[in-house]
Design a protein around this nucleic acid. Sequence first.
DNA 1: TGAAATGTTGGGGCG
DNA 2: ACGCCCCAACATTTC
Length: 483
Amino acid sequence: MTTLVWFRQDLRLADNPALLSAAARGGTVIPVYLHDTAAGPWAAGGASHWWLHHSLAVLSAALEGCGSRLTLRATSDCLATLLQLARECGATSVVWNRLYEPASIARDAAVKAALRAAGLAVASFNTALLHEPWEVQTRGGTPFQVFTPFWRQCLSLPEPAAPLPAPTALPAPRDWPVSQPLASLGLLPVRDWARAFPAAWTPGSAAAQLRLGEFLAGSFTDYPSQRNRPDLAATSRLSPHLHFGEIGPREIWHATRVHAETRGAAASWRSSQFLSEVGWREFAYHLLYHFPQTPDAPLRAEYGRFPWRPDAAVLRAWQRGRTGYPIVDAGMRELWTTGWMHNRVRMIAASFLVKDLLQPWQDGARWFWDTLVDADLAANTLGWQWTAGCGADAAPFFRIFNPVLQGLKFDPAGSYVRRWVPELAGLPDEWLHKPWEAPAAVLSAANLRLGDNYPRPIVEHGAAREIALAALQSLRVSATPSP
DNA sequence: TGAAATGTTGGGGCG
DNA sequence: ACGCCCCAACATTTC
Protein backbone atom coordinates (compact mmCIF):
# COMPACT_ATOMS: atom_id res chain seq x y z
CA MET A 1 0.00 0.00 0.00
CA THR A 2 1.70 3.17 -1.24
CA THR A 3 0.54 6.76 -0.96
CA LEU A 4 1.79 9.79 -2.88
CA VAL A 5 1.83 12.94 -0.75
CA TRP A 6 1.66 15.90 -3.09
CA PHE A 7 3.34 18.87 -1.37
CA ARG A 8 2.47 22.35 -2.59
CA GLN A 9 2.19 25.31 -0.20
CA ASP A 10 2.46 23.18 2.92
CA LEU A 11 6.21 22.73 3.15
CA ARG A 12 6.33 21.28 6.65
CA LEU A 13 6.06 17.97 8.44
CA ALA A 14 4.08 19.09 11.52
CA ASP A 15 0.41 20.05 11.38
CA ASN A 16 0.25 18.47 7.95
CA PRO A 17 -2.91 16.39 7.75
CA ALA A 18 -2.20 15.00 4.28
CA LEU A 19 1.22 13.72 5.32
CA LEU A 20 -0.06 12.42 8.65
CA SER A 21 -2.94 10.56 7.02
CA ALA A 22 -0.56 8.91 4.58
CA ALA A 23 1.75 7.86 7.41
CA ALA A 24 -1.17 6.62 9.50
CA ARG A 25 -2.22 4.19 6.80
CA GLY A 26 0.90 2.25 7.63
CA GLY A 27 2.02 1.77 4.04
CA THR A 28 4.81 3.33 2.02
CA VAL A 29 4.87 7.15 1.75
CA ILE A 30 6.23 8.95 -1.30
CA PRO A 31 6.54 12.73 -0.76
CA VAL A 32 6.41 14.61 -4.06
CA TYR A 33 6.79 18.22 -5.12
CA LEU A 34 5.82 19.17 -8.67
CA HIS A 35 7.08 22.44 -10.11
CA ASP A 36 4.10 23.37 -12.29
CA THR A 37 5.47 25.12 -15.35
CA ALA A 38 1.94 25.72 -16.64
CA ALA A 39 0.73 27.64 -13.61
CA GLY A 40 -0.65 30.51 -15.70
CA PRO A 41 -0.58 34.29 -15.31
CA TRP A 42 -0.21 34.17 -11.53
CA ALA A 43 2.67 31.72 -11.49
CA ALA A 44 5.08 32.50 -8.67
CA GLY A 45 7.39 35.48 -9.25
CA GLY A 46 11.15 35.77 -8.92
CA ALA A 47 11.40 36.46 -5.20
CA SER A 48 8.93 33.67 -4.43
CA HIS A 49 11.02 31.29 -6.52
CA TRP A 50 14.11 32.18 -4.50
CA TRP A 51 12.24 31.34 -1.31
CA LEU A 52 10.76 28.19 -2.77
CA HIS A 53 14.17 26.88 -3.80
CA HIS A 54 15.53 27.16 -0.29
CA SER A 55 12.35 25.94 1.35
CA LEU A 56 12.37 22.82 -0.82
CA ALA A 57 15.99 22.20 0.15
CA VAL A 58 15.04 22.41 3.83
CA LEU A 59 11.98 20.20 3.42
CA SER A 60 14.02 17.68 1.47
CA ALA A 61 16.64 17.55 4.23
CA ALA A 62 13.95 17.18 6.89
CA LEU A 63 12.39 14.28 5.04
CA GLU A 64 15.79 12.64 4.68
CA GLY A 65 16.20 13.03 8.41
CA CYS A 66 13.12 10.80 8.75
CA GLY A 67 14.52 8.20 6.36
CA SER A 68 12.33 9.52 3.57
CA ARG A 69 12.98 11.64 0.50
CA LEU A 70 11.38 14.41 -1.57
CA THR A 71 10.81 13.53 -5.20
CA LEU A 72 11.03 16.63 -7.39
CA ARG A 73 9.67 16.95 -10.90
CA ALA A 74 9.13 19.91 -13.18
CA THR A 75 6.04 19.43 -15.27
CA SER A 76 3.48 21.28 -17.32
CA ASP A 77 0.93 18.57 -16.57
CA CYS A 78 0.57 17.70 -12.91
CA LEU A 79 -2.09 15.07 -13.57
CA ALA A 80 0.05 13.17 -16.07
CA THR A 81 3.06 13.31 -13.76
CA LEU A 82 1.06 12.10 -10.75
CA LEU A 83 -0.38 9.23 -12.79
CA GLN A 84 3.09 8.29 -13.99
CA LEU A 85 4.53 8.47 -10.46
CA ALA A 86 1.66 6.36 -9.13
CA ARG A 87 2.39 3.79 -11.84
CA GLU A 88 6.15 3.84 -11.14
CA CYS A 89 5.64 3.40 -7.39
CA GLY A 90 2.56 1.21 -7.42
CA ALA A 91 0.74 3.87 -5.44
CA THR A 92 -2.96 3.38 -4.87
CA SER A 93 -3.75 6.72 -3.30
CA VAL A 94 -2.80 10.38 -3.55
CA VAL A 95 -3.28 12.98 -0.82
CA TRP A 96 -2.68 16.70 -0.55
CA ASN A 97 -3.59 19.81 1.40
CA ARG A 98 -5.93 22.21 -0.34
CA LEU A 99 -5.02 25.44 -2.12
CA TYR A 100 -7.53 28.26 -2.59
CA GLU A 101 -6.31 30.31 -5.54
CA PRO A 102 -8.84 30.11 -8.39
CA ALA A 103 -6.41 28.49 -10.86
CA SER A 104 -5.28 25.97 -8.24
CA ILE A 105 -8.85 25.07 -7.35
CA ALA A 106 -9.65 24.45 -11.02
CA ARG A 107 -6.50 22.40 -11.60
CA ASP A 108 -6.88 20.36 -8.42
CA ALA A 109 -10.55 19.60 -9.06
CA ALA A 110 -9.69 18.26 -12.49
CA VAL A 111 -6.72 16.28 -11.13
CA LYS A 112 -8.84 14.79 -8.36
CA ALA A 113 -11.59 13.68 -10.74
CA ALA A 114 -9.13 12.18 -13.21
CA LEU A 115 -7.12 10.34 -10.55
CA ARG A 116 -10.32 8.83 -9.19
CA ALA A 117 -11.41 7.88 -12.67
CA ALA A 118 -8.07 6.09 -12.99
CA GLY A 119 -8.90 4.06 -9.92
CA LEU A 120 -6.81 5.88 -7.32
CA ALA A 121 -8.07 6.92 -3.90
CA VAL A 122 -7.74 10.68 -3.41
CA ALA A 123 -8.15 12.79 -0.29
CA SER A 124 -7.54 16.48 0.31
CA PHE A 125 -7.29 18.36 3.61
CA ASN A 126 -7.33 21.85 5.04
CA THR A 127 -4.24 23.13 6.76
CA ALA A 128 -3.86 26.55 5.21
CA LEU A 129 -6.84 28.28 6.82
CA LEU A 130 -8.48 28.44 10.24
CA HIS A 131 -11.88 28.05 8.59
CA GLU A 132 -12.91 26.97 5.11
CA PRO A 133 -14.08 29.94 3.02
CA TRP A 134 -17.46 28.30 2.41
CA GLU A 135 -18.06 27.71 6.12
CA VAL A 136 -18.09 31.39 7.01
CA GLN A 137 -21.11 33.30 5.78
CA THR A 138 -23.53 36.03 6.72
CA ARG A 139 -27.00 35.30 8.07
CA GLY A 140 -28.23 35.71 4.53
CA GLY A 141 -25.87 33.00 3.36
CA THR A 142 -23.73 35.42 1.37
CA PRO A 143 -19.97 36.00 1.65
CA PHE A 144 -18.76 38.72 4.00
CA GLN A 145 -17.45 41.90 2.44
CA VAL A 146 -16.50 43.75 5.62
CA PHE A 147 -13.71 42.57 7.86
CA THR A 148 -15.11 43.22 11.33
CA PRO A 149 -18.30 41.15 11.04
CA PHE A 150 -16.35 38.49 9.14
CA TRP A 151 -13.83 38.12 11.93
CA ARG A 152 -16.47 38.30 14.64
CA GLN A 153 -18.22 35.40 12.93
CA CYS A 154 -14.94 33.44 12.73
CA LEU A 155 -14.34 33.99 16.44
CA SER A 156 -17.80 32.69 17.25
CA LEU A 157 -17.18 29.41 15.40
CA PRO A 158 -15.69 26.42 17.22
CA GLU A 159 -12.04 27.13 17.87
CA PRO A 160 -9.63 25.80 15.20
CA ALA A 161 -8.37 22.33 16.03
CA ALA A 162 -5.02 22.02 17.77
CA PRO A 163 -2.11 21.54 15.37
CA LEU A 164 -1.27 17.96 14.43
CA PRO A 165 2.04 16.36 15.35
CA ALA A 166 4.60 15.43 12.72
CA PRO A 167 4.41 11.77 11.69
CA THR A 168 6.68 9.53 13.74
CA ALA A 169 7.70 7.42 10.77
CA LEU A 170 7.55 7.67 6.98
CA PRO A 171 8.00 4.16 5.59
CA ALA A 172 10.24 4.25 2.51
CA PRO A 173 9.81 2.25 -0.68
CA ARG A 174 12.43 -0.29 -1.79
CA ASP A 175 13.20 1.88 -4.83
CA TRP A 176 12.63 5.62 -4.97
CA PRO A 177 11.19 7.17 -8.12
CA VAL A 178 13.55 9.31 -10.17
CA SER A 179 13.87 12.84 -8.80
CA GLN A 180 15.21 15.89 -10.59
CA PRO A 181 17.99 17.82 -8.87
CA LEU A 182 16.60 20.92 -7.14
CA ALA A 183 18.91 23.15 -9.18
CA SER A 184 17.38 21.85 -12.40
CA LEU A 185 14.07 23.48 -11.53
CA GLY A 186 15.74 26.82 -12.28
CA LEU A 187 14.21 28.63 -9.31
CA LEU A 188 17.25 30.72 -8.42
CA PRO A 189 17.77 34.01 -10.27
CA VAL A 190 20.33 34.00 -13.05
CA ARG A 191 21.54 37.47 -12.12
CA ASP A 192 22.08 37.57 -8.39
CA TRP A 193 19.64 40.28 -7.31
CA ALA A 194 18.78 38.21 -4.24
CA ARG A 195 22.22 38.45 -2.65
CA ALA A 196 20.88 40.34 0.40
CA PHE A 197 18.02 37.88 0.96
CA PRO A 198 19.93 35.31 3.05
CA ALA A 199 20.85 37.92 5.65
CA ALA A 200 17.17 38.79 6.05
CA TRP A 201 15.56 35.37 5.77
CA THR A 202 15.93 31.72 6.59
CA PRO A 203 13.32 29.70 4.70
CA GLY A 204 12.00 26.50 6.23
CA SER A 205 9.69 25.37 8.97
CA ALA A 206 12.35 25.22 11.69
CA ALA A 207 13.20 28.87 11.10
CA ALA A 208 9.49 29.70 11.06
CA GLN A 209 8.95 28.10 14.46
CA LEU A 210 12.01 29.90 15.79
CA ARG A 211 10.73 33.22 14.50
CA LEU A 212 7.31 32.71 16.08
CA GLY A 213 8.91 31.82 19.39
CA GLU A 214 11.22 34.82 19.31
CA PHE A 215 8.34 37.10 18.36
CA LEU A 216 6.13 35.91 21.21
CA ALA A 217 9.00 36.23 23.68
CA GLY A 218 10.02 39.64 22.36
CA SER A 219 8.24 42.27 20.31
CA PHE A 220 4.82 40.70 20.91
CA THR A 221 4.67 42.70 24.16
CA ASP A 222 4.59 46.00 22.30
CA TYR A 223 2.88 44.72 19.17
CA PRO A 224 -0.31 46.82 19.39
CA SER A 225 1.55 50.09 19.86
CA GLN A 226 4.57 49.45 17.63
CA ARG A 227 3.29 47.31 14.80
CA ASN A 228 3.04 50.28 12.45
CA ARG A 229 6.65 51.31 12.95
CA PRO A 230 8.81 50.21 10.02
CA ASP A 231 11.95 51.44 11.79
CA LEU A 232 11.52 48.84 14.53
CA ALA A 233 11.44 45.04 14.37
CA ALA A 234 7.93 45.12 15.83
CA THR A 235 6.13 42.59 13.65
CA SER A 236 6.42 38.82 13.41
CA ARG A 237 7.69 38.70 9.80
CA LEU A 238 6.03 35.33 9.46
CA SER A 239 4.32 36.17 6.15
CA PRO A 240 6.64 34.28 3.78
CA HIS A 241 6.72 31.28 6.09
CA LEU A 242 2.92 31.33 6.16
CA HIS A 243 2.63 31.67 2.40
CA PHE A 244 4.69 28.56 1.76
CA GLY A 245 3.04 26.68 4.58
CA GLU A 246 6.24 26.31 6.57
CA ILE A 247 4.02 27.23 9.47
CA GLY A 248 0.25 27.07 9.54
CA PRO A 249 -2.31 29.52 10.92
CA ARG A 250 -3.48 26.92 13.43
CA GLU A 251 0.05 26.67 14.83
CA ILE A 252 0.24 30.45 15.15
CA TRP A 253 -3.24 30.61 16.66
CA HIS A 254 -2.54 28.04 19.34
CA ALA A 255 1.01 29.12 20.16
CA THR A 256 -0.24 32.68 20.64
CA ARG A 257 -3.17 31.58 22.78
CA VAL A 258 -0.97 29.37 24.94
CA HIS A 259 1.57 32.15 25.34
CA ALA A 260 -1.10 34.66 26.39
CA GLU A 261 -3.09 32.29 28.60
CA THR A 262 -0.83 32.52 31.61
CA ARG A 263 0.02 36.18 31.25
CA GLY A 264 -3.16 38.04 32.14
CA ALA A 265 -5.60 40.36 30.45
CA ALA A 266 -3.02 42.61 28.76
CA ALA A 267 -1.47 39.63 26.99
CA SER A 268 -4.90 38.46 25.98
CA TRP A 269 -5.55 41.85 24.41
CA ARG A 270 -2.22 41.73 22.59
CA SER A 271 -2.94 38.26 21.29
CA SER A 272 -6.31 39.33 19.91
CA GLN A 273 -4.60 42.24 18.14
CA PHE A 274 -1.97 39.98 16.62
CA LEU A 275 -4.41 37.22 15.70
CA SER A 276 -6.69 39.68 13.98
CA GLU A 277 -3.89 40.13 11.46
CA VAL A 278 -4.12 36.40 10.86
CA GLY A 279 -7.82 37.19 10.53
CA TRP A 280 -7.07 39.61 7.68
CA ARG A 281 -5.28 36.78 5.93
CA GLU A 282 -8.37 34.59 6.40
CA PHE A 283 -10.55 37.42 5.09
CA ALA A 284 -8.33 37.75 2.02
CA TYR A 285 -8.77 34.06 1.24
CA HIS A 286 -12.50 34.31 1.89
CA LEU A 287 -12.77 37.14 -0.65
CA LEU A 288 -10.57 35.48 -3.25
CA TYR A 289 -12.58 32.28 -2.98
CA HIS A 290 -15.93 33.99 -3.40
CA PHE A 291 -14.78 36.66 -5.88
CA PRO A 292 -12.23 34.81 -8.01
CA GLN A 293 -11.96 37.54 -10.62
CA THR A 294 -10.51 40.08 -8.16
CA PRO A 295 -6.78 39.56 -8.81
CA ASP A 296 -7.35 41.27 -12.16
CA ALA A 297 -10.61 43.19 -11.90
CA PRO A 298 -11.96 45.61 -9.30
CA LEU A 299 -14.65 44.20 -7.03
CA ARG A 300 -16.57 47.44 -7.40
CA ALA A 301 -17.23 47.37 -11.11
CA GLU A 302 -17.42 51.16 -11.55
CA TYR A 303 -13.69 51.37 -10.86
CA GLY A 304 -13.15 49.56 -14.14
CA ARG A 305 -13.77 52.97 -15.73
CA PHE A 306 -11.35 54.90 -13.50
CA PRO A 307 -9.21 57.25 -15.62
CA TRP A 308 -5.79 55.85 -14.75
CA ARG A 309 -2.81 57.36 -16.52
CA PRO A 310 -0.47 54.45 -17.22
CA ASP A 311 3.07 55.72 -17.74
CA ALA A 312 6.02 53.36 -17.99
CA ALA A 313 8.55 55.94 -16.79
CA VAL A 314 6.48 56.86 -13.76
CA LEU A 315 5.91 53.22 -12.87
CA ARG A 316 9.62 52.55 -13.17
CA ALA A 317 10.55 55.47 -10.91
CA TRP A 318 8.22 54.05 -8.28
CA GLN A 319 9.58 50.52 -8.70
CA ARG A 320 13.16 51.70 -8.29
CA GLY A 321 12.48 53.93 -5.31
CA ARG A 322 13.14 57.17 -7.16
CA THR A 323 9.94 59.16 -6.57
CA GLY A 324 11.59 61.84 -4.46
CA TYR A 325 9.34 60.99 -1.49
CA PRO A 326 11.65 59.46 1.12
CA ILE A 327 9.22 57.11 2.87
CA VAL A 328 8.00 55.74 -0.47
CA ASP A 329 11.51 55.30 -1.85
CA ALA A 330 12.71 53.66 1.37
CA GLY A 331 9.92 51.11 1.16
CA MET A 332 10.48 50.32 -2.49
CA ARG A 333 14.20 49.85 -1.90
CA GLU A 334 13.62 47.68 1.15
CA LEU A 335 11.37 45.57 -1.08
CA TRP A 336 13.93 45.32 -3.87
CA THR A 337 16.78 44.54 -1.50
CA THR A 338 15.14 42.11 0.93
CA GLY A 339 12.00 40.86 -0.85
CA TRP A 340 9.80 42.30 1.86
CA MET A 341 8.31 45.62 2.97
CA HIS A 342 6.71 46.61 6.24
CA ASN A 343 2.91 46.61 5.94
CA ARG A 344 2.50 50.28 6.88
CA VAL A 345 4.96 51.23 4.15
CA ARG A 346 3.19 48.95 1.68
CA MET A 347 0.05 50.98 2.29
CA ILE A 348 1.90 54.29 1.87
CA ALA A 349 3.79 53.23 -1.26
CA ALA A 350 0.70 51.63 -2.79
CA SER A 351 -1.44 54.69 -2.06
CA PHE A 352 1.23 56.87 -3.67
CA LEU A 353 1.31 54.78 -6.84
CA VAL A 354 -2.44 54.61 -7.19
CA LYS A 355 -3.54 58.04 -5.98
CA ASP A 356 -0.60 60.40 -6.47
CA LEU A 357 0.73 58.79 -9.64
CA LEU A 358 -2.63 57.51 -10.98
CA GLN A 359 -1.10 54.21 -12.08
CA PRO A 360 -3.49 51.23 -12.29
CA TRP A 361 -3.42 49.25 -9.06
CA GLN A 362 -2.89 46.09 -11.12
CA ASP A 363 0.57 47.37 -12.13
CA GLY A 364 1.51 47.75 -8.49
CA ALA A 365 0.08 44.36 -7.64
CA ARG A 366 2.20 42.81 -10.41
CA TRP A 367 5.39 44.41 -9.11
CA PHE A 368 4.71 43.25 -5.57
CA TRP A 369 3.89 39.82 -6.94
CA ASP A 370 7.30 39.56 -8.57
CA THR A 371 9.39 41.11 -5.80
CA LEU A 372 7.85 39.96 -2.51
CA VAL A 373 9.06 36.76 -0.91
CA ASP A 374 5.63 36.60 0.79
CA ALA A 375 3.70 37.24 -2.45
CA ASP A 376 0.30 35.72 -1.84
CA LEU A 377 -2.50 36.10 -4.35
CA ALA A 378 -5.23 36.52 -1.75
CA ALA A 379 -3.36 38.97 0.48
CA ASN A 380 -1.88 40.93 -2.44
CA THR A 381 -5.27 41.28 -4.11
CA LEU A 382 -6.96 42.40 -0.92
CA GLY A 383 -4.18 44.88 -0.17
CA TRP A 384 -4.20 46.54 -3.58
CA GLN A 385 -7.96 46.68 -3.91
CA TRP A 386 -8.16 48.08 -0.39
CA THR A 387 -5.65 50.77 -1.28
CA ALA A 388 -7.30 51.63 -4.57
CA GLY A 389 -10.67 51.91 -2.86
CA CYS A 390 -12.27 49.45 -5.26
CA GLY A 391 -12.40 46.34 -3.03
CA ALA A 392 -14.30 44.94 -0.10
CA ASP A 393 -14.12 47.02 3.09
CA ALA A 394 -11.79 49.30 1.19
CA ALA A 395 -10.33 52.60 2.22
CA PRO A 396 -12.49 55.11 0.34
CA PHE A 397 -10.58 56.46 -2.63
CA PHE A 398 -10.60 59.95 -1.14
CA ARG A 399 -8.55 58.76 1.82
CA ILE A 400 -5.23 59.77 0.36
CA PHE A 401 -2.11 59.26 2.43
CA ASN A 402 0.20 62.25 2.76
CA PRO A 403 3.62 60.62 2.43
CA VAL A 404 5.29 63.34 4.49
CA LEU A 405 2.87 63.09 7.40
CA GLN A 406 2.93 59.30 7.29
CA GLY A 407 6.72 59.37 7.32
CA LEU A 408 6.84 61.76 10.26
CA LYS A 409 4.28 59.74 12.17
CA PHE A 410 5.62 56.24 11.64
CA ASP A 411 9.34 56.87 11.12
CA PRO A 412 9.75 59.75 13.57
CA ALA A 413 13.49 59.43 14.05
CA GLY A 414 14.01 58.80 10.35
CA SER A 415 16.07 55.68 10.89
CA TYR A 416 14.04 53.68 8.38
CA VAL A 417 14.56 56.27 5.65
CA ARG A 418 18.24 56.68 6.49
CA ARG A 419 18.76 52.94 6.28
CA TRP A 420 17.19 52.47 2.86
CA VAL A 421 17.88 55.87 1.28
CA PRO A 422 21.43 56.49 2.45
CA GLU A 423 21.86 59.59 0.29
CA LEU A 424 19.44 61.32 2.68
CA ALA A 425 21.22 60.15 5.82
CA GLY A 426 22.93 63.48 6.47
CA LEU A 427 19.69 65.48 6.62
CA PRO A 428 18.41 66.58 10.04
CA ASP A 429 15.18 64.86 11.19
CA GLU A 430 13.24 68.03 10.53
CA TRP A 431 13.80 67.81 6.75
CA LEU A 432 14.27 64.09 6.27
CA HIS A 433 10.73 63.41 5.03
CA LYS A 434 10.55 66.58 2.91
CA PRO A 435 14.03 67.37 1.58
CA TRP A 436 12.64 69.71 -1.08
CA GLU A 437 11.68 72.16 1.67
CA ALA A 438 15.10 72.19 3.29
CA PRO A 439 17.12 75.43 3.03
CA ALA A 440 19.99 75.33 0.56
CA ALA A 441 22.55 75.47 3.36
CA VAL A 442 21.04 72.40 5.02
CA LEU A 443 21.05 70.52 1.72
CA SER A 444 24.66 71.30 0.96
CA ALA A 445 25.73 70.46 4.50
CA ALA A 446 24.08 67.06 3.98
CA ASN A 447 25.81 66.71 0.60
CA LEU A 448 22.40 66.48 -1.05
CA ARG A 449 21.83 67.85 -4.53
CA LEU A 450 18.16 67.45 -5.45
CA GLY A 451 17.73 66.39 -9.03
CA ASP A 452 21.29 65.03 -8.96
CA ASN A 453 22.00 62.54 -6.20
CA TYR A 454 18.37 62.32 -5.06
CA PRO A 455 15.30 63.05 -7.21
CA ARG A 456 13.06 66.02 -6.79
CA PRO A 457 9.45 64.99 -5.99
CA ILE A 458 8.01 63.28 -9.06
CA VAL A 459 4.70 65.06 -8.34
CA GLU A 460 3.64 67.68 -5.81
CA HIS A 461 1.42 65.86 -3.35
CA GLY A 462 -1.10 68.65 -2.83
CA ALA A 463 -1.69 69.05 -6.55
CA ALA A 464 -1.67 65.29 -7.16
CA ARG A 465 -4.31 64.88 -4.49
CA GLU A 466 -6.60 67.40 -6.18
CA ILE A 467 -6.18 65.64 -9.51
CA ALA A 468 -6.98 62.26 -7.94
CA LEU A 469 -10.11 63.62 -6.29
CA ALA A 470 -11.20 65.16 -9.59
CA ALA A 471 -10.64 61.81 -11.31
CA LEU A 472 -12.81 60.16 -8.68
CA GLN A 473 -15.45 62.81 -9.27
CA SER A 474 -15.48 62.06 -12.98
CA LEU A 475 -16.26 58.45 -12.10
CA ARG A 476 -19.25 59.50 -10.04
CA VAL A 477 -20.59 61.92 -12.58
CA SER A 478 -20.57 59.34 -15.36
CA ALA A 479 -22.01 56.73 -13.02
CA THR A 480 -25.03 58.80 -12.03
CA PRO A 481 -25.90 61.31 -14.76
CA SER A 482 -28.02 64.12 -13.41
CA PRO A 483 -31.63 64.27 -14.68
C1' DT B 1 -5.70 50.80 8.78
C1' DG B 2 -6.60 59.83 6.58
C1' DA B 3 -6.04 64.51 5.40
C1' DA B 4 -7.57 68.95 4.91
C1' DA B 5 -11.07 72.31 5.42
C1' DT B 6 -14.22 74.23 8.29
C1' DG B 7 -16.50 75.05 12.68
C1' DT B 8 -16.48 75.74 17.76
C1' DT B 9 -14.66 76.87 22.13
C1' DG B 10 -12.25 79.19 25.57
C1' DG B 11 -8.22 81.61 27.56
C1' DG B 12 -5.81 85.74 27.55
C1' DG B 13 -4.30 90.33 25.81
C1' DC B 14 -5.99 94.65 25.25
C1' DG B 15 -8.61 98.98 24.78
C1' DA C 1 -15.54 95.17 34.38
C1' DC C 2 -16.52 94.31 29.90
C1' DG C 3 -16.46 93.37 25.05
C1' DC C 4 -13.63 92.39 21.34
C1' DC C 5 -10.20 90.07 18.88
C1' DC C 6 -6.76 86.63 18.20
C1' DC C 7 -5.60 82.14 17.96
C1' DA C 8 -4.50 77.65 19.70
C1' DA C 9 -6.81 73.49 20.62
C1' DC C 10 -10.11 70.57 19.67
C1' DA C 11 -14.25 68.80 17.09
C1' DT C 12 -16.81 68.11 12.95
C1' DT C 13 -17.40 67.83 8.16
C1' DT C 14 -15.97 67.03 3.61
C1' DC C 15 -13.34 65.00 0.05
